[in-house]
């Protein structure tokens, strides 16, 4: 950050703000990244981008840039949704594979167990 008085800063920079003033969605970012990678595909790794923006939220709060932190928070949230969507796609894909008989034996066993559970 330059302290040139003639430059117009893109956003207000002031005293450090406490972490948590703006949500950084860190837990969501981590969980959705891992689930997307396991359930969907290596593309799930783009969830790392969400963690990078989570990190930006904290560093911007530390220099008191509330507007910048808010933007980083929104970007982190967007990438969290991307990773979450990939995880959901992966889950549906797996369910579809199960339905079309990739492991019909296990599926039948599941249905029988459910019937048993209902009749008990």
């Amino acid at each position: 950050m330059s302290s040139n008085p003639y430059s117009t800063p893109s956003s207000q920079v002031s005293d450090p703000l406490p972490p948590g003033t703006v949500p950084n969605h860190l837990a969501w970012a981590i969980v959705s990244t891992v689930l997307a990678t396991c359930l969907c595909c290596p593309l799930g790794l783009i969830g790392i981008v969400a963690i990078v923006f989570s990190s930006k939220v904290n560093s911007l709060l530390r220099i008191g840039d509330l507007a910048g932190a808010q933007r980083a928070s929104n970007t982190a949230k967007t990438w969290c949704w991307v990773a979450t969507a990939l995880a959901i796609i992966g889950l549906l894909w797996t369910a579809y594979g199960l339905y079309t008989g990739q492991s019909q034996m296990q599926y039948q066993q599941l249905m029988e167990l459910m019937e048993q559970a209902q009749s008990n």
């Binding site: 990678t37 359930l39 969907c40 595909c41 290596p42 799930g44 199960l98 492991s103």
Partner: peptide, 14 residues
């Protein structure tokens, strides 16, 4: 192997 639970796609592919 090939049970009810999904395996890791990353491990399957790479």
């Amino acid at each position: 192997a090939r049970g009810l639970f999904p395996t890791c796609m990353f491990h399957d592919l790479t």
